[in-house]
Write a protein that binds this DNA or RNA. Sequence first.
DNA 1: CCTATTCCACAACGTTTGTTGTGGCACACA
DNA 2: TGTGTGCCACAACAAACGTTGTGGAATAGG
Lengths: 200, 200
Amino acid sequence: MPRTNPQRRDALADAAIAITALAGVGGVTHRAVDRAAQVPIGTTANYFPSRDELLSAAARRVADVHLAESAAATAAGAAGAAKQGGDVSGHLTELLTVSLVEAATTQRARYLAIYELQLEAQRRPALAAALARLSEAAEAQTQAMHLALRDAGAPPGAVPLLITLYGGALFMLVTGPGPVDTAAVRRLVEAMVAGARSTG
Amino acid sequence: MPRTNPQRRDALADAAIAITALAGVGGVTHRAVDRAAQVPIGTTANYFPSRDELLSAAARRVADVHLAESAAATAAGAAGAAKQGGDVSGHLTELLTVSLVEAATTQRARYLAIYELQLEAQRRPALAAALARLSEAAEAQTQAMHLALRDAGAPPGAVPLLITLYGGALFMLVTGPGPVDTAAVRRLVEAMVAGARSTG
DNA sequence: CCTATTCCACAACGTTTGTTGTGGCACACA
DNA sequence: TGTGTGCCACAACAAACGTTGTGGAATAGG
């Protein structure tokens, strides 16, 4: 039976996420998590008896944290949009640009972990299920996108299209070489928004 | 000292690629490659004494194969464009659409392997160097893009931008859930091309 | 036919892995 | 104070890992 100290569970899952970003999914072992979390060897194995549960726990944890943070960011963005008034399309561009740059710099480690887990999920159904919650986060965050694009006269299919473009650009920026240039990202976002709006 | 039978080397590297796509980078071990290639245990360890060399060999091999195939595809595409005459932009859209659908269906396993290797390359410099040759392939294949976009009056920065969008969309299609819909991919490509052309 | 070099199959090493079992600590309840 | 009832630290196991070394087969040159 899995143990149920919630704080310990989260701390161990956080350590597993850090290892995933640093050493890849292959580096996530019970003992490695024990060492990273500075707990006695055997602790992680008690909380997550199998490796499948360990990786799924890391996925759930990363989804939880990401959901919480992105909800806060979306609220802040919505507040900024309401204060700014017009130019919804321009504001959307700025929102996506900031979001991409942040993801590729400040939160790069987290996204690397997510991509590692996503690839591993191709052959671990439990992991895939745990990781599916991240899609909900994306949909919640794109509520603002819906409104902005509709006000800008974009066709209804534009939002999922823009989400795909955004997700792809995110991967390229996070895994690509070299530093991230904000101006280049803005041009990229402008092209994405313009392309999504042009869809008929 | 590494052994030098070229055919054996390629066959072992091909087996390593297949394992990477099927079981992930973590599944690529000397013994696993031996089993997959149906050679006596120890053979792979003789050809690639360390794991770093084994993974790098897989990366070089996948780059070689991809380079050869994409060169052939580009030649065929260029021939089609010359025969078709006008409507370079429409032809570019069709070219990218076919390329994306093929990548996400027929060649899905290869791209999964490439993404696995790309993430592992974040912490293996030798792998990163071996994988860098894939960028050359991308540049060679986009020679047609340059011409088509220039003829369509796009700004000079449009090509790298389109490459980024294309690469990102590729990842989303390959790793995403569900089957690939050609019509949806075409809409995606149309948005990408339109967005790239709109850049100023 | 003899020799030397190249190539390969296999054994062996110490280490690390996933997983399970066991014993003891601490705290709640009577 | 006595007694359970979670919770956890640790030991132990077989299996698989990366890596290195060794002996033999095959082949080419003289």
